[in-house]
Design a protein around this nucleic acid. Structure first.
Lengths: 248, 248
DNA sequence: TATGTTGTTCTCAGATCGAGATTTACTCTA
DNA sequence: TAGAGTAAATCTCGATCTGAGAACAACATA
């Protein structure tokens, strides 16, 4: 039998129904705190509970496209938002994770600089940026696990990649970059050593030869402005100081 | 409407049919070369082409369970094989990646020490270990991409985790461990520095206070034997020498 | 017994690191 | 407007880590 004959006789409906969704763990930094985007579910199951934004993947839709669309529907951020970083986190498919049917959720993590307040989607769901340490202890489905995995991904990506530049504007100071690391890692860093290290990593940042218009809000000189370089990996890496204890 | 009423009225068959499969990139080391497990497809589509082992996820089956089962069916390796490491690689869901229907494939990578020759599965498919640099240029579906991603995952996991200990036996010499790195990374390492580094990383290996029975095949003293330690991350990491050029 | 191989340890100069101090330029308040 | 406080940027220094090579001892093979 050749492929054409085979496909003509193939009946997809003969198999038990399963569904595939995308869920997005979107991070942004607001008021020096790491925030995650959550929505309040407007329909069963788990109506009224907080959950990750997401939804079913369209029949002709690519996975990254579906993730970008779902995120756009919640935040109003244009799909082609220039500083948005979107990457696949993993797939969650425990048989009983959704009471409706067998649902596989492909989770994505999104990173972006201070995003606008979410607009309630067409389905009138409430959506909000929630500081990570104020997030509800329980989220719908297995979304608490997914958020935890997303945070861990963000933390380690900061170590080995220039991801931090996605959390700041087009031009930024070294101090702004350090604030990103301190916020996501949840620990303060040595300003002098951080400065030296960032500038010593090839391709991490490049100088714009300009400075801020004013000094800091509470004093201090004007800071030099940089933009993201062309490195895709940081070499050498910036390691979380507290990693040593987490090793085992 | 409460959850119970909602679920009673919910019809899963109302949605377009999709399928979820698992595909496994299984690596082992044979004759000082990295080998990947491939099967020749016995039925359409792409009948006769080489592909990754895998198959549909059972209706009540967890994803890791499905991956372990598929691997066991091809290799005869018991699901609970003591030194087998299995982890999720990513999900591939381009709409036209399978001509039959919309198929999402959750890919897993498996690492194990020299596995036995594969047994042809119940569906009489031919299965074989293929050296990575002799693998067919084209595999069925998007499996070439998946294998490439799996290799990259293996390479970077060697840097930051004690994964290499999964490729050797229960007890091993530092030289055997170095051979794993050299094989997967495809470059030779400085024996003395590698030795020093492995022993200096806390929890990577622990001594058994025994040595090999004989010296090496071509001479040399007996080597001390070690077993895997309890570290889950290597700190400091062992970095690929060639990474520096790959940075951008 | 001679030769070559290899596991293990040592050496040493250069790079990197953490912790702290210094200098300088700025904002704010008195 | 002078002084206090703050923060960017640079420097210092000892401890640690790194790569490259050498040394040495224990072994297999011829």
């Amino acid at each position: 039998m050749n492929d054409a004959d085979f496909l003509a006789s193939y009946d997809p409906h003969a198999y038990p129904p399963v569904a595939v969704t995308v869920d997005i763990v979107a991070f942004t930094i607001r008021n020096n705190a790491l925030n995650v985007l959550l929505v309040r579910r407007a329909c069963p199951p788990s109506e009224g509970m907080w959950a990750l934004p997401g939804g079913f993947v369209g029949q002709w839709e690519d996975l990254p496209t579906a993730a970008a669309r779902e995120l756009a529907e919640e935040t109003g951020v244009a799909t082609a938002h220039r500083r948005l970083h979107l990457e696949q986190l993993g797939t969650y498919g425990t048989p009983d994770r959704d009471p409706r049917m067998r649902v596989f959720s492909v989770a994505y993590v999104a990173f972006a600089p201070d995003l606008p307040d979410p607009v309630s989607g067409s389905d009138a769901r409430e959506a909000a940026w929630v500081p990570m340490d104020e997030r509800p202890a329980e989220l719908a489905f297995d979304h608490s696990t997914i958020v935890a995995d997303g945070l861990e991904r963000a933390r380690s990506k900061l170590e080995y990649t220039p991801l931090a530049t996605k959390f700041v504007g087009e031009e930024f100071t070294i101090a702004e970059l350090r604030a990103v690391y301190e916020t996501v890692w949840g620990e303060s860093l040595h300003a002098g050593n951080f400065h030296r290290k960032v500038l010593s990593v090839p391709g991490f940042v490049e100088s714009t030869n300009t400075t801020t218009e004013r000094g800091g809000a509470r004093g201090g000189p004007r800071a030099k402005l940089y933009r993201a370089g062309d490195a895709r990996l940081l070499h050498p890496a910036l390691l979380m100081p507290s990693r040593e204890e987490t090793v085992r």
